[in-house]
Measured scan of single mutants.
Amino acid sequence: MATGGRRGAAAAPLLVAVAALLLGAAGHLYPGEVCPGMDIRNNLTRLHELENCSVIEGHLQILLMFKTRPEDFRDLSFPKLIMITDYLLLFRVYGLESLKDLFPNLTVIRGSRLFFNYALVIFEMVHLKELGLYNLMNITRGSVRIEKNNELCYLATIDWSRILDSVEDNYIVLNKDDNEECGDICPGTAKGKTNCPATVINGQFVERCWTHSHCQKVCPTICKSHGCTAEGLCCHSECLGNCSQPDDPTKCVACRNFYLDGRCVETCPPPYYHFQDWRCVNFSFCQDLHHKCKNSRRQGCHQYVIHNNKCIPECPSGYTMNSSNLLCTPCLGPCPKVCHLLEGEKTIDSVTSAQELRGCTVINGSLIINIRGGNNLAAELEANLGLIEEISGYLKIRRSYALVSLSFFRKLRLIRGETLEIGNYSFYALDNQNLRQLWDWSKHNLTITQGKLFFHYNPKLCLSEIHKMEEVSGTKGRQERNDIALKTNGDQASCENELLKFSYIRTSFDKI
């Protein structure tokens, strides 16, 4: 039985969820670079991206490699990797027998973001014989899940209580170790020597080791999670996991709180800001991140802002960003909400898709409305799209047979046209069989910064309504002859009103 693990408890099935942008060198404390989270699957090609990484700022997932063999891993080693800020997950990587050479110096898994409450997941690794993470000293947050690894031993010899604050939620089941077939031998045991430290858990006094050649490092209890030197002297209180010299914040392997210019500090002093819960960055760093993602459509890219001495992905609820200094300031009234469309555009074809934009005031991208039916549609669209004030790209209304009016965009005031449909149009209306009105132009103002209007096959939309939009939106004169079809717009509506004058002759039985 794995020490510190839980057996036999019912657990939810383990679901495996399925960018080499360097964020800056980590400095003297770390020998390499800070790398983003990685999802490495199918083959070993991307694994080489770990070569210079000291910190993975995010998670590391290595999974679904069915053609790899043990010899493929023999020359692979990433000794610079010290810390993973989120979680480490391995799933069905064939041929991998140990992690001792792959990650010989991995010391800390912070667990800032977890995989279903777990910071370390080893699942269905069919050839893994031992973990071998002999320098792993601290899992700051989260638990361990090690399950269905039929060859995995050296679990009962690990004292997880020396690595985690609590072992109650560890789930370590259905491994070879369960069948008591392992016969784990710690260093020196074969020669009758006791080389590794022994600890007591559940009444068992057991030597602690990761492999037959690597003991588990056990520091004096007084050192807590700070770690200790090879001689057993406690590291500085700002260290986490390990250090090369005692009581020196510049000799830590990793930091308990924050890293700044080669030393570990309790908090980031001005003019620095907390970033990702582990390091200090200056304003320029946060500003660069903001600008890199301002026009990016890459998933996970955030326009970072500053709030409460932190550089964070977005302002919290009730705050909006001051564009001059990136500071989050309290909103006066309802907060603006910028919604970034991942692929640059979004099609609204149902109430469900409209709900995804609920509360958005600025759309960074283009909207395509293609709704053919739905219950209580006008009210639903207004509830979900009615706060949109600005669209950076274009607005396209296409084959939306259920629409009679666009009044559900009740606050839309600006279409920038930074991206144009077919390279020309910022407003595009095609084949809307029941569209009769755009907006009530006596109450609604709309500016279209650039781009043209396109109207074709809107049989109940009168040309007068379209011409009014040209005047109000500032697009009059931009359109070419064929942009607004004269014969297919309003051709099934009563669009022309003329005053009919009647004269009559009164007659009676005795007068003409």
Rank of each mutant, 00 (worst) to 15 (best):
E231P: 14
D86Y: 03
T68G: 06
C311I: 03
E180T: 08
H307N: 15
L29E: 12
C293F: 15
D75W: 05
R263L: 12
Q216L: 02
F73K: 13
I84A: 01
N202S: 04
L89V: 01
N325R: 11
S161Y: 11
R145C: 03
H236N: 13
A119W: 00
P104S: 02
D169Y: 03
N242S: 08
R46I: 09
R145H: 04
E168L: 14
I158Y: 02
L89R: 00
S284T: 09
P187E: 09
C280G: 01
N195A: 14
D39R: 05
V173C: 13
L289A: 08
F283T: 09
F283A: 02
P220Q: 11
I146C: 05
E151A: 07
F116V: 01
T140I: 06
E207N: 07
K80M: 10
N150A: 10
G232A: 11
P197Q: 14
D178W: 13
I139L: 07
T107M: 05
C293D: 03
L106C: 02
L120C: 04
F275A: 04
S284N: 07
E207R: 09
C182M: 01
A119L: 01
I146Q: 01
Y171T: 11
A230H: 12
Y94D: 05
D159M: 02
T199F: 13
V305W: 11
L289H: 13
S296F: 08
H48F: 05
M83P: 00
I82H: 12
R69C: 06
V253M: 07
F275W: 12
D248P: 01
C328G: 00
F78R: 05
C268L: 01
K129R: 11
A230E: 12
S284H: 13
T199L: 09
E231F: 15
L99V: 10
Y304W: 14
P330L: 13
L128R: 01
P249G: 14
F66L: 08
T68M: 07
S98H: 02
W210F: 01
C315V: 01
G183L: 12
C252V: 01
I201M: 09
T85Y: 04
N42E: 02
T68Y: 05
K310Q: 13
K294A: 11
C335T: 04
D178E: 09
N295S: 09
S213P: 01
G58V: 00
G37Q: 13
A198M: 07
S317P: 10
F66R: 01
Q61M: 09
P249Q: 07
G142P: 00
T329Y: 07
M321H: 08
P79A: 14
L102Y: 01
N149M: 00
N309V: 07
L128G: 01
N117K: 03
L164Q: 07
P334S: 13
K191H: 06
A190F: 08
N202D: 12
S143Y: 03
C215S: 02
G32N: 06
Q245E: 13
K80C: 05
I139E: 00
D177A: 14
E238R: 13
P220F: 02
D247R: 13
E266K: 08
H214C: 05
K100M: 12
L44P: 05
F258Q: 03
R256H: 12
G183W: 15
Y304E: 06
V218W: 10
Y319V: 04
C286R: 00
C255M: 01
N179Y: 09
Y319P: 01
N42V: 04
P31S: 09
D159P: 02
M38S: 03
G227D: 04
F285K: 02
T140F: 06
Y154P: 01
R110H: 11
L44F: 12
H59R: 12
V93F: 09
S161T: 15
N325T: 07
R256I: 09
I82D: 15
E151C: 07
L47E: 14
C335H: 04
Y171M: 05
V218L: 09
T199A: 07
G95I: 05
H274V: 14
H212W: 13
V265L: 09
E124S: 05
D261I: 12
L88T: 00
N202W: 08
H48I: 07
C153E: 04
I62C: 02
L76A: 11
R263M: 07
C286N: 00
I201Q: 03
C239D: 00
G95R: 09
D261L: 09
L332W: 10
R110Y: 05
N309G: 11
G37H: 07
I201T: 05
D169M: 14
N170A: 07
W278M: 09
K217G: 07
I158M: 04
G227S: 13
S284W: 12
D261E: 09
I109W: 00
I306A: 08
L60P: 00
V305I: 10
S161V: 14
P187T: 12
T157K: 06
G183R: 08
L131W: 00
L50S: 02
E180I: 10
L63R: 01
K292S: 09
N242G: 09
N308G: 04
L88F: 12
C228D: 03
G262A: 10
L114Q: 10
L102T: 03
V108F: 03
D75F: 13
N322G: 07
C53R: 00
V144S: 06
Y304L: 08
N52W: 08
C239F: 00
I84T: 00
R279G: 14
K129D: 04
C215V: 04
Q204L: 10
H307E: 09
L120R: 01
P79L: 05
C53P: 00
S161I: 05
S98N: 08
L174G: 11
G203T: 13
D72H: 05
L289R: 09
G188D: 13
L120M: 11
I222P: 08
F115L: 03
F91R: 02
F115V: 05
C264G: 00
P187F: 15
S323N: 05
S284I: 03
N170Q: 06
E238V: 11
G333S: 15
Y154H: 05
N43M: 12
R263T: 12
N325Y: 08
C243E: 01
H59M: 12
N175Q: 03
S317K: 14
P246A: 09
T267A: 14
N282T: 09
I185C: 14
Y87V: 02
H302V: 11
Y134V: 12
D72N: 14
R263C: 06
H274T: 15
P336E: 14
S161E: 09
T45V: 07
P269R: 15
D288R: 13
N309W: 09
T157S: 11
A119G: 14
W160C: 00
I109R: 00
E314A: 13
P271D: 03
V126L: 03
S225M: 08
N322F: 13
M65Y: 05
F275G: 02
G58L: 00
D178R: 05
K129M: 09
H307T: 04
H212Y: 14
T229E: 05
K129Y: 06
I62E: 00
F205N: 08
R279W: 07
T320K: 07
L88M: 05
N135H: 08
R297P: 09
D177P: 08
N309H: 15
T157V: 05
G188M: 06
P197I: 15
P336S: 12
R141P: 00
C234M: 01
C234P: 01
G241E: 02
N105V: 11
E57M: 14
L99K: 01
V108K: 06
G262Q: 12
L131M: 01
P313V: 05
D178M: 10
L102I: 05
C293S: 07
L327S: 09
L155E: 04
N170S: 05
G227V: 02
E151Q: 14
F285A: 15
I172H: 05
P197E: 08
N308W: 10
L128M: 09
N179M: 05
